[in-house]
Design a protein around this nucleic acid. Structure first.
Lengths: 245, 245
DNA sequence: GATATTGGATAGATTCACTATCCATAAAGC
DNA sequence: GCTTTATGGATAGTGAATCTATCCAATATC
């Protein structure tokens, strides 16, 4: 397909597509003459991923570029690894506090902490240690000067719980099967990446809500119901029916 | 204190402070002559909050302005309500998908869902319903065309769990007591707001990590340890009463 | 051969968050 | 009182990020 068609189908202006190619988030089409190039469905898919990442997560193009670069350098045999590795190019909100040696020290501590978790796999893929360390340093800087790395334990536990829920929801997972949108495009990689950012958004909103409710209960003296001690998770059977459309 | 001193103490350039005042994120000093104004500690605190919100959460100034406006219109008697209401000015990543009526319909559904939760307090403060509805619409648009509102249940449960952990950590809460940084400035409101954004960052990093580990385990066929079935949660000794202040 | 479209290059637009300069006025030091 | 310095307000400029518009010669299509 030609640029014009790609533009029309993706709903992105020609000039923007050219811009994306210039910036390296989108690969150039196959040129077979000085001013003739053709684009494939992979360009369309990539374009949709870029827009989603920008619309939903508001990621800067530079980060999107890292993600797509990760996607491009082939993990063909292993869509999960592919998606996940791409996803870990995601965060890097950088802006860590503290000086270099301190960051290194905390990162080391965090790695040790992560390794001690029951669900850690290997030692090499602990990229996030730096990210987590940066967050810890910010907490120390702005909130609790002596926040211990061990204070992450509860959060780690809950994060693992949340990842269970997220994966259960993935089509093919143990959750309720759902029809994926645009099946031809919704390959696992794209779904994994989008799922990560979309459910981050959902969960964030629910978290705000929970915090509000808890604080209201506390300040009005109302009873604060305990966090569910993991009841049998009743409704996994049928009851969850449809939604519209 | 004069502008120069405020600037020096907060580590923010004079021109930036003036800019913040112009933009309405910071209130003007008390002017007692055409070119004389004095600033109080509340200006210093506000300035530090603004910087933290920008550095840590990367919030756009417009959102910071909403937060500070919320703070300024007095909830004096109730620091919790104050902090929380300010915090709910936070999100609004807007950019909802779908048309007006659809959004309204989903928001209504979400409100009903929230009201049915065991921990919802009143019906008025369901601001987040719109935010959550927007997120649901994005999930439907980009991922699962028929994602049901009921699919939020698991997430809501986990969010409540997380909010428990967050509140337990607050100084004065049942968590490990920690020394707050700069006690004179760390009034409850500031701590609540900063805590919200900081722990969002921490938890997000841990979540990425958990997802990575889970996906690695799945793709390599390794055992996937179950999310803790809520073990006795050892340190719950004194049954958790109200939080600080 | 006439017309329209293409890819590539370049320049402009827009927004955001500052930053710098100017200036009449007030304060501080002498 | 007089000089120097600092102040607040206004205005303009900067730089990054993300597009958007225009121009152009080469190519495609009729």
């Amino acid at each position: 397909m030609r640029l014009a068609e790609l533009s029309r189908r993706a709903g992105v202006p020609r000039s923007t597509i050219k811009f994306y190619i210039r910036e390296g988030v989108l690969s150039a089409g196959a040129t077979h003459a000085r001013n003739q190039a053709s684009y494939g469905t992979q360009h369309l898919e990539r374009l949709e991923l870029i827009r989603a990442l920008r619309d939903v997560a508001g990621l800067p193009l530079e980060v999107v570029a890292r993600v797509t670069a990760e996607l491009d350098r082939g993990w063909e045999g292993d869509p999960f690894a592919e998606a996940m590795l791409a996803m870990y190019a995601l965060p890097s909100r950088a802006a860590a506090a503290g000086d270099e040696p301190e960051r290194k020290r905390v990162a080391k501590e965090v790695r040790a902490f992560l390794r001690a978790l029951p669900w850690t796999t290997d030692n090499e893929r602990l990229f996030f240690a730096d990210e987590i360390a940066a967050a810890v340093l910010q907490v120390r800087r702005y909130l609790y000067a002596d926040f211990p790395v061990a204070g992450l334990a509860k959060y780690a536990e809950i994060a693992w719980l949340l990842s269970e829920a997220e994966f259960a929801l993935a089509p093919g997972g143990p959750g309720v099967p759902m029809r994926a949108r645009g099946d031809d495009l919704a390959e696992p990689t794209r779904r994994a990446i989008l799922g990560s950012v979309l459910f981050e958004r959902i969960f964030g909103a629910l978290r705000h809500c929970a915090n509000a409710m808890r604080s209201t209960r506390i300040s009005t003296g109302a009873a604060v119901p305990p966090a569910a001690p993991r009841r049998p998770t009743r409704k996994r059977v049928a009851p969850r029916k449809k939604a519209k459309r």
